[in-house]
Simulated assay, not measured.
Amino acid sequence: MTWAIGEFSQEEDRYAEVLRRQWGSDTLRQIYRDAYGTDYPEEADPFGFVTRTDLARIAELAGPVRGRRLADLGCGRGGPGLEVARALGTSLAGVDVVEAAVTEARTRAAAADVADTRFTVGSFEATGLETRSCAAVMSVDALWMVWDKPAAFAEVTRILEPGGRFVFTTWEPAYLDHRSLLSDAGFEVLVHEETPAWLRRQLAVYRGILGHRRELADEMGQTAAATLIAEARETRSVLATTPRVLVAARKSG
């Protein structure tokens, strides 16, 4: 997670090289293991700050959707979405702006116990999914990178069935009211809560990244390591006033 000074970064593809090289870094995995302990969802091989607790909460709040379609927007390499789809008994449509992540997700899906998967390149504002084709939509730590959030929420409204739920985690600075934006897009907000122990754990990850810069560069390459190091340096100062939240909303009508 990285902010430009005074506003969110719009460089949604800046993590492409990290996603390509993440699999090769035992050091990065160990940093997350040390920070999250048994709550680290290693089976999902995630990139970011998602936990087993988050994934269970997302599945709980998505509603009774067995046999229907779940969409994961900003799906990354696919692991978290596949875990939730497996738990819910749904098919999965994953969308991400980074082509390298989508390629990795397709490979992962081939070995996953999910009946029907589809991973495509697209964005929050233009998913490429059919109107009213999803029973639920999830997103993990990706919405903060989306500049035009009203357009993103309008797109989620379009692809959801009436009564379908949108469940996501993101960071919420004081000037940004996700609840108001969701209401304007035709949603009823059901849950808005901080995720457990997020600040302590995220700071621990950043300390680990800064303390293992050389190992990360050796394992992931200079470009990917530099992206993680820049995030660890730049983001810490805003975290105390920018909580990580989990939000669940239901489409009206």
Rank of each mutant, 00 (worst) to 15 (best):
P162M: 13
A142R: 02
P162E: 13
W147I: 05
R179N: 12
M145G: 10
P173N: 12
A142F: 02
R158W: 09
A154W: 01
G164N: 07
D148G: 02
R158C: 07
G164D: 04
L176R: 03
T157V: 13
V146P: 01
D141L: 08
K149Y: 01
F153H: 00
W171F: 15
V156E: 05
D184G: 12
S183P: 14
A142W: 00
R158L: 06
V146G: 05
A151D: 12
G164R: 04
V140G: 01
F153Y: 04
L182G: 03
I159E: 04
G163F: 05
F168W: 04
A152G: 07
E155H: 11
G186V: 03
W171Y: 15
K149E: 01
D177C: 08
V137G: 01
R165S: 06
I159M: 10
F168G: 00
L160A: 08
R179W: 06
R179I: 10
W147M: 08
D141M: 08
F168T: 00
A185I: 04
I159H: 09
V156G: 03
V167C: 06
L181R: 12
R165F: 11
D148P: 08
S183H: 15
D148V: 03
S183F: 14
A174G: 15
L176G: 03
V156D: 00
A152H: 02
D184P: 13
W171G: 04
D177H: 09
L143W: 01
D184W: 11
H178E: 10
S139M: 04
D177V: 12
S139E: 03
T157M: 14
D177G: 12
P173S: 13
E172I: 13
K149H: 05
P150S: 05
A154Q: 03
G163C: 09
M145F: 12
M138G: 03
D148Q: 08
R165Y: 04
L182T: 09
I159R: 06
K149Q: 04
A154T: 11
Y175T: 14
E161T: 13
G164I: 03
T169M: 06
A152M: 04
K149S: 02
G163E: 06
E161P: 12
R179Q: 13
W171V: 14
E155A: 02
V137R: 00
M145L: 13
A151E: 12
H178R: 10
V137H: 00
S180R: 15
T169R: 04
V140R: 08
L181M: 14
M145I: 07
V156L: 05
A151I: 11
V137L: 02
S183T: 15
E172M: 14
R165G: 07
L182C: 11
I159K: 03
S183K: 14
G163W: 05
L181S: 14
S183Q: 15
E161D: 13
L160H: 06
R179V: 08
M138N: 06
F166L: 13
G163P: 07
